[in-house]
Write a protein that binds this DNA or RNA. Structure first.
Lengths: 211, 211
DNA sequence: TAGATTGTTAATCGATTAACAATC
DNA sequence: TAGATTGTTAATCGATTAACAATC
């Protein structure tokens, strides 16, 4: 089977959010055109992507069953099976992520938090205990955790990354502004605020020019 | 002149970070090949993008002057002129963004924080004062702020967005997991964690399959 | 039946990569 | 001079959009 494109994959969560809204408003059916309009997308893209993830498919004239689509997209995105993750770096951003309730809905479960700062370890800035970083390898190994979240300052990010890989982590979600060096069999997703800001900033410039 | 692509724009900040690293290590020259290797990019992409932003250009055999490139990319990305922004929502994520020192380097200055929670307004979770949301329109107007950052829960994001637009904000950086409804003359950049996680998660699945 | 909507094939568009002459 | 590297043109690849038959 053909693979889904990265772009499509990134759009699916937004479909899901919209579908859940519809469901809460007791809307039972929706057309691809409607979804496209609401999310500012091309209707053909939406149709293709829905055709890709939906077994049931839609019916001409009536569209798709909202409940059905919610189930199918959730399952396609793997929201039903829990994915364990560890997070290293319990500063402000780390704490914010740890406290974020939304991850449950995505099937992501942060099973342990690490920081090398003794003060943070004792204060328990979140409801979860914070362990010393040296305990990470053993825990990751024992619990067979595959996802690591990095929220440490740039200068220690690579070190943390190396330790994660040594411990058996296979996917790294990197929130520190550094380009990590990793072997090719490790998945890395950089959350690059500077990149986002660059795009937003250029868009703004264009808008201001046209006024 | 032809425009730079969105993809290129997103890559430039990572070039800049690498160039600054080189500069700190007293490296004076760098080739596009070297940059490409370090950032896992195609060397032709890098050459094209550098040709686009650099007036000075590179010299065959020696490459580009690191200091020169740093200046040129910084200026291209507008890091030298300060862009004022307001942020609404001083919860955990909002506080983390407010406290983030890195924005200075990108020319982004958060000039005011807002929240409708009286408790947050008084505790000053950051070093900056937190104002009541009702004071936003006047301040945005007086200071001619164009960028608004949304870090409120989903259910109030649209409301905040509308108020920002009314106040004269033209670019919105949205950290809440909602699709905002906005007119076409407003720039919106969604920071969608679910989208990132979807990509990372599929990459991980592929890696685990091949083992 | 008429019309809205699906699903798919074909056409277009844009970004990435390959190839190569120019040059320090 | 030889070789590394630039800058650019051409070829490829993939994603988006247009067009349209099928169908409820």
């Amino acid at each position: 089977m053909e693979e889904i494109s990265k772009e499509s994959l990134q759009r699916l969560p937004s479909y899901l959010r919209y579908l859940k809204q519809l469901h809460e408003s007791n809307v039972t059916h929706v057309s691809s055109t409607n979804i496209a309009e609401r999310l500012y997308l091309n209707p053909v893209s939406v149709r293709k992507e829905l055709a890709f993830v939906s077994v049931a498919g839609g019916k001409p004239k009536t569209g798709f069953k909202v409940v059905e689509l919610i189930k199918e997209i959730s399952s396609f995105l793997g929201y039903n099976n829990v994915k364990d993750a560890v997070i290293v770096g319990v500063g402000k951003l780390g704490s914010a992520l740890i406290g974020y309730k939304g991850f449950d809905a995505y099937g992501l479960k942060i099973v342990a938090c690490f920081d090398n700062n003794k003060a943070i370890q004792s204060t328990q800035s979140s409801d979860k205990p914070v362990f010393d970083i040296h305990k990470m390898p053993d825990l990751v190994n024992r619990l067979n955790v595959k996802i690591g979240i990095i929220t440490v300052p740039s200068n220690s990010a690579q070190e943390v990354c190396d330790l994660m890989i040594e411990s058996g982590i296979k996917a790294i979600w990197n929130f520190s502004p550094t380009q990590l060096v990793t072997p090719s069999n490790i998945a890395v997703k950089n959350e690059d605020m500077a990149a986002s800001l660059a795009v937003l900033s250029k868009q703004l410039d264009k808008i201001l020019e046209n006024e």
